[in-house]
């Protein structure tokens, strides 16, 4: 059984090769910029930036559509609600109790564009960065918190172990489900209570197994001299390259553009 973790798409584009710290930090910057943008010229600018990133990352349109699917419902919902309940001045259409204003239409378009830009932007990062690299990036970005005695290394270690064990537990869940089905468990019963109850014989063995694995893994880590983050060197090193400089530069241009447009109110 093969399980894919996260939504990483293997590749070797410039975006793939960029440092995860760059990608994570700039994602935050990008999100702020998208939320700041009001005018359609501004959105045009963001669109150019995003399109550039997508082309550079060599992500096929199919996957962009895939990342949109889960939020489609939210978009439609926002659209409908705002279209009918937002109050404006310029009436475009009126029929009995339904009134649509020009302002509400503009507001809706803005909302939708923001959601779409946010989702696509974040998925470029998850599509081009392995979960392991993401963890490393998060650890590096959070490392200033060590001063506040926040266990940054331990949290990162926990995250990477969790990632490592996802396929193992997926296989195990499948096996236990099948074993209990063979003993008459019914996971697609029509009664909702019956169905909820049928998960007990899966969850308990899984939980016990997780404990057993945790204990054995702790033993194995101990035997390999693991004693927390202190005095530990790193095999995976994050290195900034020219690519990161260019990405920072392009993003700075975008930021300048978005802020200027906002200030001038174009």
């Amino acid at each position: 059984m093969t399980v894919s973790i996260g939504q990483y798409l293997p590749g070797n584009s410039v975006i793939h090769r960029a440092d995860p710290r760059t990608k994570l930090a700039l994602t935050v910057v990008y999100m702020v910029l998208v939320l700041l943008t009001r005018s359609f010229i501004g959105f045009g600018l963001v669109f150019l930036y995003l399109a550039g990133a997508l082309i550079a990352a060599r992500i096929r349109p199919k996957y962009i559509w895939n990342s949109m699917k889960p939020v489609l419902l939210i978009i439609v919902f926002t659209l409908v609600l705002n279209l009918f309940f937002y109050q404006g001045e310029t009436v475009l259409y009126h029929w009995r109790f339904i009134t649509i204003y020009l302002e509400s239409l503009i507001f809706c378009a803005r909302m939708c564009l923001r959601i779409i830009f946010l989702v696509v932007g974040v998925s470029i990062v998850t599509y081009t960065t392995t979960p392991v690299m993401l963890t490393d990036g998060i650890e590096a970005l959070l490392s200033p918190l060590k001063i506040l005695h926040f266990p940054v290394h331990e949290v990162a270690m926990m995250m990477s172990i969790a990632l490592r064990f996802i396929p193992t537990f997926a296989e195990e869940t499948d096996r236990i489900m099948k074993a209990q089905t063979a003993r008459g468990s019914d996971f697609d019963s029509k009664h909702i209570m019956e169905r909820i109850r049928s998960f007990v014989p899966i969850l308990i063995p899984l939980f016990i197994s997780a404990w057993r694995r945790a204990e054995e893994l702790a033993n194995a880590m101990n035997a390999r001299c693991y004693r927390g983050g202190e005095g530990r060197s790193r095999f995976r090193v994050l290195r900034m390259t020219k690519i990161d400089g260019i990405i920072f530069g392009v993003t700075a241009i975008l930021a300048a553009g978005v802020i200027l447009i906002r200030v001038w109110g174009v």
């Binding site: 392991v132 990477s160 172990i161 990632l163 490592r164 893994l217 390999r224 060197s233 095999f235």
Partner: peptide, 20 residues
């Protein structure tokens, strides 16, 4: 239950990281 790393080389590196 004894492989910590998410790839072969990272797992082999785990003990070496601990040794600093």
């Amino acid at each position: 239950n004894q492989i910590v790393g998410s790839s072969v080389e990272e797992d082999v590196a785990f003990g070496l990281e601990n040794l600093g």
